[in-house]
Each structure stands twice: as C-alpha cells, then as structure tokens.
Design a protein around this nucleic acid. Structure first.
Length: 451
RNA sequence: GGCGACGUGGCCGAGUGGUUCAGGCAAGGGCCUGCAAAGCCCUGUACAUGGGUUCGAUUCCCAUCGUCGCCUCCA
C-alpha cells in the first residue's frame, strides 16, 4: 500500500485503509467568490493525480470535495457589487468546474455544498454546546479550544505559543470570547445578511463546521484521508479536527497537505496578498496540461514557482511526449513492460514521488524511441507502459488525431513531390502546412501531420 | 516570541554517506535527412558559508548568512 506523509504524525507512514480496497478522501474545496487562482489549480491537480493513481492501482476511490457557498467573502462581494450572493456563488461554481474540466481534473464523487448542510451543522453545534465544549455570546457560538486536549496537533504548536505571535490581525469576536483562539461555529446575522434559523438566533455557520459535518456524513467516521493546501492546516483543519475530537468522533486517519504556489521570487501567491495570477489566464495562454506536467515534475509538498521559463519547459516536454504518442499510435496492443510498472508503483507509493516517476516516464519514452528506431519489437511493451503511466498521471497525450482531408491531401502531394525530387514544391507544401499549425514530420513511411 | 520549510550545474527541479547516472528545458558536437522535423548518441565534475562527526559528506550534526511560510478564517 501507499505511504504518504501525514501532517498529524509528521512523518511518512502507510495509508491504512478503513476498508480494504476502497479509499475515502475528503478534499477541502473552494469558497466560491472569485475566479480560481493558481493555488487552487495546484491543490486540485495534486489530488487528482493521487486519485487517478489510486484508481489505476485498482482501488475504489470515493472523493468528496465541498463547495463553500456561504462565507464572509461572498457576502462582502455581494454587498460591494450590490447583487444577490447566490448570483456570485452559482456563477463562480460554474466557472470553477469549467476550469477543472479544462485542467483535466475529474469531478469529485461527491460535491456537497455548505448551504445544503446548515441543519446538520446547527445540530452538531447544539451538541457541542450541550456537552459544554461550545458556548454562545452576543455575536455567535464559539468552540472552546481549551477543552480539546491536543489542540495544535496539526499546527504543531502549543496553544500558548500560538497566542504569543500574530497580534496584528483582527480577531473575530475577540471581545466576547473566553479564549483568544476560540473560533466561531455560528455567526449571528447582521441586518440584511443571509441567515438561517438556529437556537441561538438567525445566522450562518462558521467556516470550519461544514467540512466536519459533510465529511462524516458522506464518508463516515475514521475516513482515510483528509487533504488540502498547506494554508488549510491551520486554522481550518485544526478547527475541523477540534470539533470532531470535542464530539468524541473519530475523524480523518491521515492528513495530507500540498505546498504553495509561489511567485518567481519565492513568495506565496495568495488571494490575501493580492498578487493573484488567475488559473483561467494560465490556461488561456498555455496548454492546460503544462501545469499538470510542471506539478508532476515537482514534489507535492515543496513550493512550486510558476513562471514563464517553467511553463515553457513543460510545454516543450509535452510536445516530445505528444510526438512519441503519434509515432507509436499504431503499434500492436501488448502487455506493458512489467519492470517499468513495478518501478513506477514503487516510486509513486513512496509519498507520491511524481518527480522520480516522471523521470521514469521520460526515460521509458527514450528507450521506446530508440527501440522503434532500431526496429526492436520491445517498443510495444515500453509504449504500453508509457500509456499506463500517463493514465495514472491523468496526462492525456495528443497523438495528432483528426487531420482534415485537405491537409492530408497536401501531405500526399508533399510525398509525391519528394519522390519526384521536386524539393522546392515539397518545401512550399511543408511551409504551407506548418503555417496552418501542423507539426510536419517527413518519415520513410510518408509525411505525418499533427497539431 | 513560537513552529516550520528551503538554499543543487545556464534555467527549472529530484535525490543520495563513497565507483556511472535523476529528469525536463536550453546550449555544443555527432548520426539520420535532399534540407528540415521527429528521434537517437555524446558533452557540463553542481550541491549557500564556516566548523564538526567519518577512512570518506552535497547528503549526518552544530553554527552563520540568505529566502520564504504559518501563528484565527487564503488551495
């Protein structure tokens, strides 16, 4: 079975499955109030690769990933733009899934929305109040973190140490809380704000409650893996966990966090800093597969800078893979090379080591190309292994595909001109085809076209 | 103040106590080609600095410098 770094134990350990053969994963999804940024893209791609690899390995994966469709950021934008908050959330969600589609990220098995779970959240908060782990004030209901023995486990910080720093930020509800680290489970509505009924007054849930309720509802207690970006480790995941612990429920067995996207100077790229680079822009200007490629070549836990050079290199690397796909497209179907796949599994099982695995992918491509040049039949099993690895990566290679008839006619004319040694005509035809956007490869077996 | 990450050859980016080696991109040379394209082969003695441990460190330890992240709502 796969070994993964676990934030809670701060080491790589085996991902133990609650139920053999199936993996239950909860991934914290976006708050829908703006276009997806590069960080969203990284997180979803990392876990898409994980999911596809697990499925490729023969496991049944249930991936639940929420949409936070009620939140202060949404309300703020609605007020700023003077339009209904639902207008923002529905549009942003549509944009989100469109972007995910372009990225090749498979839709989660379950997409729960916070607003669909308000009753359940109210019930859970009620329980927490009842057992004395939460209390209400004049602006909401708070979880008492001091009642959670190991609060700070994910942050790897003691409560007292956490309080020392960070004095510069505004602390929500600071005046009313028993302890500065207590966090809001329920926020009472101000006039005009969206609100749901509750025993403590009309209001809305705090951010951290939805994931607890939804993950436990869909995946059940002790589900296998909870994941998200580094920035969610604290406070979001810490606070989710605190609620589950306070309730006496078994929560995630394993915690996985991916590293940040940083700008070329190395600074975290985040919404709060305002230096957002839009995921939509990236996909508009570059092959969306390039981002996946770039991330595959980096380890998921480290920072990744997304820059011009990086993306260009990834695009070039993809073009080599595409041309490989094109030249091996008509090979006989055989079993993939077992040694290659064994190494692939070994590396991927080792904390999702995609950098080594992509190195293996390129190496296998090179070997297969050499075999093909040499007329060695082993090319077929190597090419099949490449196909397997790409499937596990979620990387779709472009073998050229549909070439219009008139382009094919030009290619035939090009071959005829070459056979007649009319190189001027041949070159003109080639330039013509290239101008149409085709990659033109003149081989012994005739001219191949691909886009 | 606390916790943590990172500094690798032209660029990106893995990894390891010791002969050969990540990988991608770029560069140079070669093979192939009418010329290209695609592909293949060859070429770079890199690991922030200063100590220490060791027969031997880029890899372990300590310190220094530098960059960055988190410490209440950002994937």
């Amino acid at each position: 079975m796969m070994r993964l770094y676990d934030t809670a134990t701060r080491g790589v350990r085996e991902l133990e499955l609650r139920e053999p053969g199936t993996v239950s994963i909860y991934l914290c999804g976006p708050t829908v109030y703006g276009p997806p940024h590069l960080g969203h893209g990284r997180a979803t791609l990392v876990y898409d690769v994980l999911r596809r690899y697990l499925e490729w390995s023969g496991l049944k994966v249930r991936l639940a990933s929420n949409i936070t469709d009620i939140d202060d950021s949404i309300i703020n934008r609605a007020n700023r733009e003077n339009r209904p908050w639902q207008d923002i959330t529905t549009k942003c969600e549509a944009v989100w899934f469109e972007a995910m589609g372009k990225l090749g990220v498979a839709r989660p098995s379950d997409v729960p929305h916070a607003t669909e779970y308000v009753d359940e959240m109210v019930a859970m908060i009620g329980q927490l109040v009842e057992i004395g782990r939460a209390y209400s004030t004049d602006d909401g209901v708070y979880l008492s973190v001091e009642t959670v023995a190991d609060y700070g486990l994910l942050a790897n910080q003691r409560l007292s140490d956490m309080i020392e720093g960070g004095g510069e930020r505004e602390v929500f509800g600071a005046d009313n809380k028993r302890h500065p680290a207590d966090f809001a489970l329920w926020k009472l509505a101000k006039p005009g704000e969206p609100a749901w009924p509750s025993p403590w007054g009309d209001g809305r849930p705090g951010w951290h409650s939805e994931c607890v309720v939804m993950s436990l509802d869909l995946l059940g207690e002790g589900f296998d893996l909870h994941c998200g970006g580094m920035d969610l480790k604290f406070p979001h995941h810490e606070n989710e966990r605190a609620q589950a612990v306070a309730l006496g429920k078994r929560f995630a067995n394993h915690w996985m966090h991916n590293g940040f996207v940083v700008d070329p100077v190395g600074e975290k790229m985040s919404k709060s800093l305002g230096n957002v680079t839009n995921l939509l822009d990236l996909m508009e200007h570059y092959d969306p597969r390039a981002y996946r490629m770039l991330l595959l070549q980096s380890h998921y836990r480290g920072p990744v800078s997304v820059g011009q050079d990086n993306i260009d290199a990834a695009v070039k690397a993809l073009s080599g893979l595409d041309s490989f796909a094109a030249r091996t497209a008509s090979l006989p179907v055989v079993d993939p090379d077992a040694d290659v796949l064994a190494r692939f599994r070994e590396q991927m099982d080792d904390d999702l080591d995609t950098p080594s695995s992509t190195a293996l992918l390129f190496d296998t491509v090179r070997r297969a190309n050499a075999a093909l040049d040499a007329g060695d039949p082993s090319v077929a099993s190597l090419a099949a292994a490449v196909g397997e690895m790409c499937t596990a990566f979620g990387l779709v290679l472009n073998a050229g595909g549909d070439v219009p008839a008139e382009a094919l006619a030009k290619a035939a004319a090009l071959d005829a001109a070459r056979a007649a040694r009319d190189f001027a005509a041949a070159d003109a035809l080639r330039a013509d085809l290239q101008a149409e956007g085709f990659t033109v490869e003149t081989t012994k077996d005739g001219t191949q076209l691909r886009r």
